[in-house]
Amino acid sequence: MQNKLPGDLKRVRVESVREIAENAYVLEYKRFFEFEAGQIISISLSAEEPPRMYSIASGEKDENIQVLFNVVSEGKLTPALSGLKKGDFIWTSPGFGKFTGTSGKACWIAQGTGIAPFASMFRSGQRVGKTLIHGGRYPDSFYYADEFELVLKENYIRCCSREIVPGTFHGRVTDYLNSLDSLSADSLYYLCGSSEMVVETRDLLIKKGVSFTRIVGEIYF
């Protein structure tokens, strides 16, 4: 989905682009705006090209903005983004969007790079009462695992669908949720991933007794 809002995009210099797992990259540039953890930004390679939206993965006070992305081979933007070097330029917007966190109890459920807004919330200090369930295909799909593991401990659940890995649940996040006897009724449930993942997980949570009023979804449009 294209996004040209809000306001004009600003030209910024890339600090780095790193490959952190197969096909997964982190792009960084100097932060020039205040934002709320969980928000998104628009990125484009030029002022003329329609930008795309990405969640911010860095904390609210971090010096750099971090963007986590997978390369979509047939895509126009991500193959080019992955090839950028320090000093190259991109066009980007300030943070926007309402998928922002809570200081209260919450269960964060992510698929793949859908971990980004939760990484931002976590890095911004939202840690108490948080459970993170992250789905990925392979062991290296659990981006930022070291940070989460250290603090969230048993409240950090990795669901690996393609390989059996010690310390991780074998299956998808929906398989994991299905395996639970009950779910917390007083928690908020934040979902981030593809529309299929968000819709399927939301349906499952509702089926298991969670009120839809406690579920918030962010979809990769």
């Binding site: 809002l5 998104i40 309402k98 449009f221």
Partner: peptide
Amino acid sequence: FEEERRMLMPVEQVYPLPE
């Protein structure tokens, strides 16, 4: 209402009704 609309329609998070 924003809070209600976003439960029904995730797009509200990105493109809020007032906008």
